Simulated scan of single mutants.
Amino acid sequence: MQKTTAVGLAALIATYFLGGMSARHEIFPWPQLSALRKMVGGEKPAAPSRYTFDDKERLIGDESKTLVNCPTQTDRTAVLLILGQSNAANDGGQRHRSDYGARVVNAFDKRCYIAASPLLGSTDTKGEYWTLLANNLIASGQYDSVILAPLAYSGSEVARWATGGDINPVLVDTVKELRDSGYRITSVLWVQGEKDLVIGTTAEAYQERFMSMVDTLRQDGVEAPVYISIASKCLEPSNGGFKEHIPDNAIVRAQLALSKSGHGIREGVNSDELLDGEDRYDDCHIGGTGAEKVSRAWMNLLRGDVYLESSR
């Protein structure tokens, strides 16, 4: 009896470890048993959501959006192409919506929606400050309408935007969609750099890859100034960053050099210097007070911007 019990226990232990190894390494019989379970029980249905994403997790649908006719562009219309990583995407700590109805729109896929966080075209579903910027631009009296065309990917390094990168073709498509909608981009706003600091991109490599992206824009007929933010600060490992920030770093040096290089490139908002610890809700991403600061800084830049077709 004891021998039978011992043999049974040994077999049970062996089966347990075999199952564990099979599941861990995806070897027989785990994949087959897993597939059989799905066939019999079916996949657990995903919880319903108002949001739709593409294969790169970019927000491409939101049931709460209000579809409107796209405003006609005049000389008092700002058309802003917004590019970069999480601090240009829907990762803000405060949501905003148009204070002016269909005078501030989110242009996406040749359609226009009354602007409201989160914006279609970028990753994630939190807040953003571009809608606040648009409200401020109209309130200033400088513009009658603002078209927001965001294309921002959380955690994206500059290489992905350069020729050969996976985002570059999406950039080309976005520019074409705006052109087909009758829009001429008036300013390109670039907010990116934190990821490249973490992965150790050199200043030379950053400049080369950024210029490759700018060349893509120019080849596709975008003559608008490209504003490059001074952005490299994203702290804490939970955000993929460092514990402390060194202001004088390779990415900042590259961004400053690019802003003085001509080619229609201008210095954008220096969020590294502008924002305090209280302005970032998680030591990286921009919260409510930070949104007020950066939107005001962008407004001051764009209000004084006289559109130039050639490099200054």
Rank of each mutant, 00 (worst) to 15 (best):
K3H: 12
A10D: 00
A10T: 02
A11Q: 08
L12A: 15
Y16M: 14
F17A: 11
A23S: 05
R24E: 07
H25C: 00
I27E: 02
W30Q: 05
Q32N: 11
L33T: 01
L36R: 03
V40K: 08
G41M: 13
G41N: 12
K44G: 00
A46W: 04
A47K: 15
A47S: 13
P48M: 00
F53M: 01
K56E: 14
E57C: 13
E57F: 14
D62K: 08
E63F: 07
T66P: 02
T66E: 13
V68L: 13
N69A: 15
D75W: 03
L80G: 07
L81E: 06
I82H: 02
G84I: 02
N87W: 02
G92S: 10
G92I: 03
G92M: 06
R95N: 14
S98K: 10
S98D: 08
A102L: 04
A107N: 01
F108D: 06
F108R: 04
Y113I: 04
I114G: 09
I114D: 08
I114L: 11
P118I: 05
T123D: 07
K126H: 04
G127Q: 05
T131C: 11
L133R: 01
N136Y: 05
I138K: 11
I138A: 08
I138V: 09
S140C: 08
S145N: 15
I147Q: 06
P150V: 02
Y153C: 11
S154C: 09
G155T: 05
G155Y: 01
R160F: 10
G164S: 09
I167K: 10
P169A: 08
E177I: 01
D180E: 15
G182Q: 08
I185R: 08
L189D: 06
G193L: 04
G193M: 01
D196T: 01
D196L: 05
D196S: 05
V198N: 09
I199F: 09
G200D: 02
Q207T: 14
M211K: 11
M211I: 06
S212E: 01
V222K: 10
A224E: 09
A231H: 04
G240K: 07
G240H: 04
K243V: 12
K243D: 14
H245C: 01
H245N: 05
I246E: 15
N249G: 11
I251P: 13
R253P: 09
R253A: 14
R253E: 14
A254V: 11
S259A: 15
K260D: 15
I265G: 12
R266A: 13
E267S: 11
V269P: 03
E278A: 15
D279F: 06
C284Y: 01
I286G: 01
G288A: 14
T289H: 07
G290W: 00
G290I: 00
A291I: 00
S295P: 00
L301V: 04
D305S: 09
D305K: 05
V306Y: 03
S311L: 11
S311K: 11
R312K: 13
